[in-house]
Amino acid sequence: MRRTMLQSVFLYSCVVALALFTIAPLLWLVTMSISAPTDLTEVPLRWIPSEFDFSRYGALLNIDGGSGERFLSALRNSILTAGGATVIALMLAIPAAYSFSRRGASMVLLFAFLATIMMPPITYILPLYSTFSAFGMLNKTTTLIIVYTAMLLPFATWLMKANIDVLPVEVEQAAFMEGASTSYTIRTVVLPLALPAIAATAMLSFLVAWDEFFYALIFTNDLSAKTLPVAIADFSAGRVTDYGVIASVGVMATLPPAILAICFQKFIVSGLVAGSVKG
């Protein structure tokens, strides 16, 4: 259908408005991170920095500096925690998903799995806190990995199940007919076929773990285990006079998920849509 002039104007105004609404906050965050400290305290603000100042990034990446040490150790903890939990969650989720998809495990049980992550974390936090405290496991990356595994597991199982469902069952039957065991079939036939799904699930799981704040806030208390979200909350609550520092930490924490999201957009969006809609 042809658009009239008026319709075009309206359409493109909406487009511009949406684009601005979407990227302006991010653009401003980036701008703050490279503005001179004095630019950020002008009233009214100076929108275009008087000079580009990348020194904050340099400081963040310098392990010997105060903020650098805090940032880099948080980055390391975040990568270890999110990465570790993603790997373990997938290792548990794939067999479980296979059971739901091909061994007739009850859907009610899968719903129960999903219900556990839909519950507010405050429901679980205190007994977990007491238990971990009793075993001397507070402030440990391992502890967060265990908790995040449980947090990622239901969604990963669910996504993998949906993906195994659509694989041709005859291929597996053929493997069984040829004498392969279930675990051999999963390893040599199902996993290679499900590789794209596994990658998508792993990415989404990683992003969820990367984003997690509440458990990390409660279970960690120093550089040895604090993850990026907790470190950022600290930065922002602390008596930092240069807001550009906070902005630069924010930008750094956003880069990995943003890059993943942009590069693997198709994967991630289809995973998100499937994950939130299909029953």
Partner: peptide
């Protein structure tokens, strides 16, 4: 992009 920004950020 907004979705990818961590909640805390």
């Amino acid at each position: 992009l907004p979705w990818a920004v961590p909640t805390i950020v």
